[in-house]
């Protein structure tokens, strides 16, 4: 019988499947992160213009990529909640938010540390930097809204709407450098065009780091969604006991 993705909207099915998948994803995460970061930090040469600061690429680019894509994932799962009312999907969005916020902070910090020697400033109200800062504020707002509302279905509705609004800044963060041809930040680091893409010597370890950050997100997301499902079940059981 063909499997449907909606089967994972059943918390029991999600818990069973995630339990089986988690050790493998966690193991792959460690392998990719260790290979990517060790290769990038210890075994890549300095850039002829940027010197050793080019090594910051291995933490800055993957975290920036995840900062945007985690919000996109939250957008998809929030839309599933709005349209189909599957609790697991909105709990996954809730579980993803602190991961996305952390990735955004890392991207902002490493960007500032990289920017100081290269641009001569820690911060500039550049379109991409500014939209990233606003994206971070949206993450904080999203997390705060979940905590502020007692009724979990109401919280899910309102945070999903906030997620739709914040998506504008997720898109802006990605394309700001192209939309407004101004500011200090460069365009995309990776390109399918071989001429525009970074040199292979930096590219391959970066691919490992990108895979490592994606897998780290999946690992943490599975653990955090399982935590949310357990907390929700405990809350429901306590409520049922009180009502009895």
């Amino acid at each position: 019988m063909p499997m449907s993705i909606w089967e994972y909207a059943n918390p029991k099915k999600f818990m069973q499947t995630s339990s089986a998948v988690l050790p493998w994803v966690a193991g792959l995460t460690v392998i990719c992160l260790v290979v990517g970061l060790v290769w990038g930090f210890f075994f890549t040469p300095d850039d002829f213009r940027q010197g050793s600061t080019v090594k910051i690429i291995y933490v800055h680019v993957p975290s920036a990529m995840m900062a945007i894509n985690v919000w996109v994932m939250m957008l998809v799962t929030s839309l599933i909640w709005i349209i189909r009312r599957h609790h697991v999907s909105v709990l996954a969005a809730k579980a993803a938010a602190p991961i996305g916020a952390t990735m955004t902070v890392i991207a902002l910090f490493t960007g500032a540390i990289w920017g100081q020697p290269m641009w001569g400033t820690w911060w500039e109200w550049d379109p991409r930097l500014t939209s990233f800062l606003i994206l971070f504020l949206f993450y904080l707002g999203y997390i705060a809204l979940w905590s502020a509302i007692e009724n979990s279905d109401t919280a899910a509705d309102l945070t999903s709407i906030l997620c739709l609004v914040g998506s504008v800044f997720a898109v802006l963060s990605r394309y700001a450098a192209q939309f407004w041809n101004q500011g200090l930040h460069q365009g995309a680091t990776l390109s399918l065009d071989k001429e525009e893409n970074i040199s292979d010597v930096f590219y391959y370890p970066l691919l490992f780091c990108l895979a490592g950050f994606v897998l780290l997100f999946v690992t943490l997301l599975l653990i955090r969604t399982r935590t949310e499902i357990r907390s929700r079940r405990l809350k429901a059981l306590r409520l049922r006991e009180r009502m009895a």
Partner: peptide, 19 residues
Amino acid sequence: LGKYAVEVLSAYGVSLAFL
């Protein structure tokens, strides 16, 4: 890491600490 050692090490340090 030459003259940028502080920048590179602090970028890695901050990132790993957050993770």
